[in-house]
Write a protein that binds this DNA or RNA. Sequence first.
RNA 1: GGCCGGUUCGUCUAACGGUUAGGACGCCAGGUUUUCAUCCUGGUAAUAGGGGUUCGAUUCCCCUACCGGCUACCA
Length: 507
Amino acid sequence: MREVRVRFAPSPTGPLHIGGVRTALYNYLFARKMGGKFILRIEDTDQVRFVQGAEQYIIDSLSWCGISFDEGVHVGGPHAPYRQSERKDLYRQYADQLVESGKAYYAFDTPEQLDSLRKEYELRKETFQYGPSTRMVLSNSLTLPVDQVKALIGSGTHFVIRVKIPDNEIITVNDLIRGTVSVESSLLDDKVLFKSDGMPTYHLANVVDDYLMKVSHVIRGEEWLPSAPLHVLLYRFLDWEDAMPAFAHLPLLLKPDGNGKLSKRDGDRLGFPVFPLQWTDPKTKEVSSGYRESGYIPEAFLNMLALLGWHLESDQELFSLDELVEAFSIDRCSKSGAKFDPEKARWFNHHYLSAKPAAILAGYLIPVLKENGIDAGRDYVEKVCDLVRERIVLIPDLWEQSWFFFNDPISFDEKVAAKIWKKETPQLLEDYIDILKRTEPFTSVNIETVSKQFVKDKGIGMGQLMTPFRLTVVGTNAGPGMFDMASIIGKDTIISRIKSGITKINT
RNA sequence: GGCCGGUUCGUCUAACGGUUAGGACGCCAGGUUUUCAUCCUGGUAAUAGGGGUUCGAUUCCCCUACCGGCUACCA
């Protein structure tokens, strides 16, 4: 069996969105699983849509995910360069070869001419197709005399090279996910292979590079399925059929509600990122949020993406990247599009984040503390993290759930106060302070013991003490257990907060 | 419009032609708890419709409907 070589081949036309990340992930998993190579090729043949910084964004995004490459623009390799714009000179010879063998031809029609032709057809409720039925009445090397063609090209007239699609032939694509897909050749257009700006189109560049880079499997999005027959034809025309890669067309990622392809708009509308990393549009300066900046961690992000279109027969849904590599296979990929579920993404993040060691969590929290001018000891921060870990979905929640370990509350929830703050509460808390003062050492169990005795002596329920206590310490009725919290915050601070709370809430 | 692909709980999905159609997220209820979360237990909920084939279709075939993609000198 031939060596497995797969590639992720994005266009640097903007930020990579999560569908692209999933395509990259599946390619990566397949390469690793099969002991093959994974290539990053940049398909920057469209000079108009090229966006500055997009390539670096793609590299950074996948690197954040932990997806690594064996060859590519950023790491080099035996088939360098890996940027199609730098391989520009390569493609023309293959296009010419196709012309010479009668499989392609030069065409001189201008975009304007073709546009007006399309409009004419549309008026008649027909669809214009540059193909077997029309090519003989258009301006190309099939209709023009050889001398004139040479003269036109020699004089620098703009031309494109179009594939000459055969008439009445069934072309079949074998897809690893969808089985055999057949199409009648005359339904394909005489697609442009080589543009007038000297660049190849996707179709040509893709086939040439996959051949040259010895790509064994093309795993890409479903939007390519309609042009796959053309690619098959190109391999045949170039006499590379023996080396043709296997194809696998992945289902698309759809918007969570309604219908259609997932887009940036959906993320904005529904409040979730569609990009792995934050992206600033170089032209409009518009900033789009990313999973990283929103506080997701890579293992959760990848696990979530992996399951959007792939599943084992077993019920297992939790996978590390290594486990994914071990478990992955193309034949377990599904055929239908998957609606993206931001809630499930959050759940995965909560799952992985809350299982992190305190040292890691502290590493996330300390920079936030610094931003807030807080310089707490590492040991203290780790203790806090251990206490709040279960309540965390996204990294910023760490601060949201723990700020009161570092700062006194500045306000007190009025609704809670109205409900539980009674006339006798201040005196109750004063008495409680006396008890706390005498509690030594000030540990969670000791505080619990004295508190239980205290409410017993007072003949009240635990809640009658704890809720006001909590209100003075945290400012509201949420947070970890009071005994653990109090022991970590420390006796002096706790007592001063209770006192402060009594005066502030009373007024 | 044409071509291609798709269709199992709200969502992601599992199920050699024979299962009480399973799991996860969400939601609901109960439990744990000093609060809010977490966590635990339970519940809710699906084979798009119609024809075939078959002793028996979620599973195979056909039709319809719906959804998606493609239909550029964009990828």
